[in-house]
């Protein structure tokens, strides 16, 4: 913001200001409360939860629920904890994020610097694909994955996330490259650089911020996905979210709330960490998905 904006603060009275601060703080508590509950109760023995106060700090601190959630908890039929599902998620997320970002970058490059008749329509078709309710593709997708032998595999999920992610990554790179001077591309053409050389040598080195945005967005979305994981994965490929839900919904045995909370945090941890480290880029990704340009 410029210096000129300093003196244009909307003036508010002291009482109004106090009320504003109070409201803001109350909402901060509202947003923080579930995280607090999760953390505090994941560090308590079970009886402290069932007999006591959810908001209280643990009387006896323990990391036993975390250990249990990670490696022992009964999920589905096996008592494996979340560990194998964590790796399932990683094996799915990494290639899906990489491929969708690469394709998105190339698409954005073509759609802004090598425009042709009808390119906007094609882009519109790709963009609309981001917003469809995925229920509409579940049935045929299940069939197609079956036909290609990808049903229940991690690669099947990678394919699914790639297909339904390139709309967003293309959007990011297209908006970013639209602001990239076309004269640079023309200069490189005259210098004798070809299609891929221009991309590698001229555009990609300047794409750092948007690559981060795209990677974070894709990582968060794919990691947090439940519908595809629940529909197309089997035990060898189920992601964290599905495992967490199975753990929490399982009806047999005692409900170990402390383990559930620890598991929920474990499932949230990677995206939370990304958010804490690179929140700025996360917000940029969110905004680009709504207010374009």
């Amino acid at each position: 913001m410029s210096v000129a904006s300093q003196d244009t603060t909307i003036r508010t009275g002291r009482v109004t200001r106090a009320l504003i601060y109070l409201t803001l703080l109350l909402f901060a508590l509202f947003y923080l409360m579930p995280l607090f509950v999760m953390v505090v109760n994941s560090l308590k023995p079970l009886h402290e939860i069932t007999s006591g106060n959810m908001m209280a700090l643990p009387e006896v601190w323990t990391i036993e629920p975390w250990r249990k959630a990670w490696s022992e908890a009964q999920i589905g039929v096996q008592a494996t904890g979340l560990k194998p599902y964590f790796w399932n998620s990683i094996k799915m997320v990494v290639p899906a994020v990489f491929l969708s970002t690469m394709l998105g970058a190339l698409n954005g490059y073509v759609l802004t610097k090598w425009r042709f008749r009808g390119d906007t329509i094609l882009f519109g078709l790709m963009l609309f694909a981001c917003f469809i309710p995925f229920q509409i593709v579940l049935i045929p997708m299940a069939r197609v994955l079956g036909i290609f032998g990808l049903a229940g595999t991690t690669w099947g999920l990678v394919l699914v996330h790639l297909v339904y992610g390139i709309g967003f990554t293309t959007l990011y790179f297209r908006n970013y490259y639209a602001a990239f001077p076309t004269e640079l591309v023309r200069a490189a053409q005259i210098d004798g650089a070809g299609f891929f050389q221009i991309f590698w040598r001229i555009l990609l080195p300047s794409s750092g911020p948007i690559i981060v945005v795209s990677v974070i967005w894709q990582f968060t979305n794919i990691w947090n996905d439940f519908l595809f994981g629940a529909s197309f994965a089997d035990f060898s490929s189920q992601p964290m979210t599905v495992a967490l839900n199975n753990l929490v919904q399982s009806s047999h045995g005692v409900k170990e709330y402390n383990v559930h909370f620890a598991a929920a945090i474990l499932a949230a941890l990677p995206t939370l960490l990304v958010y804490i480290v690179a929140g700025r880029y996360f917000v940029r990704g969110l905004m680009a998905g709504s207010v374009k340009g």
């Binding site: 023309r186 200069a187 053409q189 650089a193 040598r201 001229i202 080195p205």
Partner: peptide
């Protein structure tokens, strides 16, 4: 003929220097 094969050089309005 491709621009690079015409043995021409161009100076652009924005200079179009590669920023990286």
């Amino acid at each position: 003929v491709h621009p690079s094969k015409r043995n021409i050089a161009m100076v652009f309005q924005s200079y179009a220097l590669y920023p990286n």
